[in-house]
Design a protein around this nucleic acid. Structure first.
Lengths: 224, 224
DNA sequence: CGACCGGTACTTGTATACAAGCACACGCAC
DNA sequence: GTGCGTGTGCTTGTATACAAGTACCGGTCG
């Protein structure tokens, strides 16, 4: 239930700014308001939707501030994790990472498929350092970032480029060069972040306005 | 509602392992099951309670793995933030931090009062680097850590020691010595973490058992 | 005496009904 | 034409009723 809604938001099936009525969703999904409402609460917790009491719930616009925050947290965690790499890497995780990269290199890979592999790859990297459990926190904070990435990917940073950066990171890790791994990771993470402003200029309606004005009902994003 | 329950869990008023029945809480707090249930869902999200469908909800035992994770995330975020300190610090935030430290130094400060000041201090440090919004994520991941701290504080790491470490951090920051600030911060954060194992030996029933056995109803922690 | 089987009392999960409140549209007065 | 007041329809928040399932207790049988 929650996973379904989260996916709809992350894949932009529910556009930023769009109203998400509990009644409407409940009817559409064939369940009661209760589970829908509980899912919405969770989504609100990670900032993907905004709930205005007695007014309505809306899909959050992509907030550059939150994107920057997610970026910072992710960078901090993933870079710091590299410092904790053990001298001998876990063979199973390593094999999974290499298999993952091979799949990323496959021609004609879909966008959503690539995203799933990307998630798995970064999670695996954290596992290599023994901090796999921290991925949950990173993942939760990463919602806004992911939406921005989906807007940017396929244009400035096609999957092939990302796959290449992934391989550079893993190669540096396997080679034992932590400094190189950190540099590659930083380059990779920043590449995503640098696209946000460009996207913002392209589709400003998807982003939060500068002032903190409360959204009104008519203020709906239509996929023009 | 959620804040009330969270406080009860963090202050150990609701002991780890204790059952938290929705009906019972609703009756005790004079509200319906619905708001209690929604609060419990949020608490479960941050790992403070565990919900076993059709069985019951229980306050999570302190999980050393999760404590270590929270520690790692916190260390990663707060140390990395120090690298982003601007050349000129925000005067207002700085003043608030100094005022905070003065309050920490007050004699006869209560434990809960100190905790609130500690939260405020670390949040302020993040604001100094322009990453104040990241505190929400750190705070959410920090639940397990906080419970462990409450167990340890007043014994091995009395408030006075922590206050001193806080001052060392801020002094290094004001002095522009990022390396010293990092060192002081690391010392401070590690001091908390190093106590966990000792506490565990002292009150093992408050911690998660090694095996992942599902708790049964009779398995209740009584404050012996 | 020990093992097994069923009833009971509790749990959470879901659906529904009611309460309270805000935004918008319509109509009226100026 | 313009501004204001009121009614209506929607929203979320809360309370309650029902459904489904599990653990425990006690009786019964071997």
């Amino acid at each position: 239930m929650y996973a379904t809604l989260r996916r709809k938001v992350l894949t932009m099936e529910l556009a930023p700014g769009a109203p998400v009525s509990e009644n409407e969703l409940a009817a559409a999904l064939g369940v009661s308001r209760t589970p829908v409402r509980e899912s919405l609460i969770l989504l609100a917790e990670e900032g993907l939707v905004q709930v205005f009491p007695k007014v309505g719930s809306f899909v959050s616009r992509v907030d550059p501030v939150r994107v920057a925050d997610a970026q910072f947290i992710r960078e901090a965690v993933e870079l710091t994790a590299l410092d904790d790499l053990p001298s001998v890497l876990d063979a199973d995780v390593l094999a999974a990472l290499h298999a993952n990269l091979d799949q990323q290199d496959r021609a004609g890979i879909g966008l959503e498929e690539f995203f799933a592999l990307d998630e798995e790859f970064h999670h695996g990297l954290l596992q290599l350092s023994g901090h796999g459990a921290a991925w949950a926190t990173v993942s939760a904070a990463k919602g806004h970032l992911d939406r921005a990435r989906r807007l940017g990917l396929g244009e400035a940073s096609p999957p092939a480029v990302n796959a290449g950066q992934h391989r550079a990171i893993l190669d540096a890790i396997v080679g034992g060069d932590v400094a190189a791994a950190r540099a590659a990771m930083r380059t990779h993470l920043r590449a995503v972040f640098d696209d946000v402003e460009r996207i913002r200029a392209q589709s400003p309606s998807l982003f939060a306005s500068n002032d903190g004005s409360t959204p009104v009902r008519r203020n709906v994003v239509t996929w023009d």
